[in-house]
Each structure stands twice: as structure tokens, then as C-alpha cells.
């Protein structure tokens, strides 16, 4: 009897478990459908496009071709038909990576102290500070970018102030330089650095900091050996959140950079627009995605390894 009822119990439990699983899947179906259609769908279309032939005036023709991918890496010289590495694409990728890296470093240098400042305010006023950080997000990206332009252009606020103060006699050309692109991207993506760093910082047990001082650690040492290791996940998240959108930025380089030098986003747009070469544009997009993905995977694997070493 006892055996039987136990078996029955486990049968019932199993059935109940199955029902729960079924219901959970059923309930999450709408979300899954949206995710699959909205996130993977367009990517699959791009992937398919990258393996098709370019249409005459934009669009694609439904014939298989690897020409798009070929052109990402290799260029057939239009003058002597020799094939060589696509150095134009490489230098554009390099510029994007370099500027995104500098943007990330600047955003970290500004965002870390800001997050520290907010986390050390009394609990009641923290929300106000966080609220202030998110205020720029209410404004359209384009408008924020144009606002930066007003600040740094030749007849802009900075130059006018410096000239009327007699510091400079000629306006400094800031607009349309790589500096302008970096400044714009830092401004636009800074909240994406502050918020995750703050989230880690808030959980930081400040008694540990005090303990560090008690043990005669200098301020620098406390920062390097206590605070930074503890908020590292936030810093990493912030860096990723700033670096990745910077890499694909389109509006900021276009408006502030003056368009003389392309970044990846602008190169992709060129292929879909005036270049009428959709397969190349699609291949470039997928390539960018792959580079970012591989970098992230490598990072995750390394950090897991590092964690394991610490634990052993």
C-alpha cells in the first residue's frame, strides 16, 4: 500500500510537473514568437542577402553568390584587376574600433567617479541623482547630437567664450574631427556606463573600504585592491554597453565627423544606398556582428577561467 501510494504520488507529481512545463511554455509562446520573428528574422534575411547577387539598382537577385563576402575582405583593383586585401574596409574597421575604444575609456573615466559619487550619497537622494543621469535619454539622439554641434562649432559656445576671454584669437576647429565624434559618442553613451557601474557600486559593502583603511592601505590601494575588483562586473557590463553601440554608430559620426571619414555604420549605409550593393552591405553587417560576438565569447570564457582559478 505504502509503496503504491508513493508511486502514485510520484506519478501525480510527474504529471503535475509536465503540466507546469507545458503551461510555462504555452504562456511564453507569444514572447518566444516575437523574439524569433523580430530578433532572428531580420538577421536571417540579412544572412540570406549576403549570399545573393546584387540587383542592378539596389535590392538583390535570387541567385547564389559569394561576391558580397569576397568584397568584405578582398578588393579587385578597378584599374588593373589585381586582387588584394580590402585595405579601405580594414582602415574603416580600424578607425571604428579605435574611436569606440577611446570612447569607452573616456566614458569609464567619467562614469566611474560619477557612479561612486551617487552610490555614496544618502539613500534618499540617490534616486534624484539617477533620475538626473537619465534625463538626456528623454531627448532624441539626433537632437542631442545637434546640441553638441552647437557647443563645439566655430561660432559655438566654447569658441565664443574662449575668444571673448582672450584665450585664443582664432576659433579652434573641433567640429568635423575625430575628437568631435568621440566627444559626441561619450556624451550619448555615458549613462550606459554610469548605470551598471552604479548598480555594482550600490551593492558594495563600504565596511570593506573602511577595513582597508584600517589596515593602512593608501587611497589608491583601496581603489585598486578593494573597490575595483568588487565592482568589476559593473565595469565590464558598462564597457560592453558603450563599446558595442559605438562600433556601429551612424548618426554621431555623420553629424559631428562631417562625413569625410567613414565608420562601419556609414560604410554599410553607403552599400545599401548609393553603392547599390546590398549583398556587400549585408555581409559587412553580419561580419561586424560576428566580430562582436566572438570577442564577447572569448571574454566570457576567459573570465570564467579566471573565476575558476580564484575558487580553487
Amino acid at each position: 500500500m505504502a509503496d503504491n501510494s508513493q508511486r502514485n504520488d510520484s506519478v501525480f507529481e510527474a504529471a503535475a510537473h509536465r503540466a507546469r512545463v507545458r503551461r510555462n511554455w504555452l504562456l511564453s509562446t507569444p514572447a518566444l514568437i516575437i523574439l524569433v520573428l523580430a530578433a532572428s528574422g531580420p538577421l536571417l534575411v540579412m544572412l540570406a542577402y549576403s549570399f545573393l547577387q546584387a540587383g542592378d539598382y539596389g535590392g538583390v537577385e535570387y541567385r547564389f553568390s559569394t561576391e558580397g563576402w569576397f568584397q568584405v575582405f578582398l578588393a579587385r583593383d578597378i584599374f588593373d584587376d589585381t586582387v588584394s586585401v580590402a585595405d579601405a574596409h580594414l582602415s574603416i574597421f580600424w578607425r571604428s574600433a579605435r574611436l569606440s575604444f577611446l570612447t569607452t575609456v573616456t566614458a569609464l573615466a567619467l562614469g566611474f567617479p560619477t557612479a561612486y559619487f551617487i552610490a555614496t550619497r544618502p539613500r534618499s537622494s540617490r534616486n534624484l541623482w539617477l533620475f538626473l543621469v537619465t534625463v538626456p535619454f528623454w531627448t532624441n539622439l539626433l537632437i542631442r547630437t545637434f546640441a553638441i554641434m552647437e557647443v563645439i562649432k566655430n561660432q559655438g559656445i566654447v569658441n565664443t567664450l574662449l575668444m571673448s576671454a582672450g584665450v585664443i584669437s582664432e576659433p579652434i576647429q573641433m567640429l568635423y574631427t575625430d575628437f568631435a565624434i568621440m566627444l559626441g559618442m561619450t556624451y550619448v553613451y555615458l549613462p550606459l556606463m554610469i548605470l551598471p557601474v552604479y548598480a555594482s557600486m550600490e551593492k558594495l559593502d563600504f565596511r570593506l573600504v573602511e577595513a582597508g583603511y584600517d589596515l593602512y592601505a593608501t587611497r589608491i590601494k583601496v581603489l585598486w585592491r578593494v573597490i575595483i575588483p568588487l565592482v568589476k562586473p559593473g565595469i565590464v557590463a558598462g564597457c560592453i554597453l558603450v563599446f558595442i553601440p559605438s562600433l556601429g554608430a551612424y548618426v554621431t559620426p555623420r553629424v559631428l565627423g562631417g562625413g569625410r571619414n567613414l565608420m562601419i555604420g556609414n560604410l554599410i549605409e553607403l552599400q545599401f544606398g548609393q553603392g547599390s550593393n546590398w549583398p556587400l552591405g549585408a555581409a559587412l553587417s553580419i561580419f561586424l556582428l560576428l566580430v562582436v560576438m566572438v570577442a564577447l565569447l572569448l571574454y566570457v570564457r576567459n573570465s570564467q577561467k579566471a573565476n575558476n582559478i580564484v575558487r580553487h
Partner: peptide
């Protein structure tokens, strides 16, 4: 021809 122009254009803006 558009392909050639695009190549020149990319070269110009690289």
C-alpha cells in the same frame, strides 16, 4: 560603372 564609382568613393573616405 556604379561599382567602380563606389570603389573610388570608399577609397576617398577610408
Amino acid at each position: 560603372i556604379t561599382k567602380m564609382y563606389t570603389a573610388i568613393w570608399t577609397e576617398l573616405q577610408k
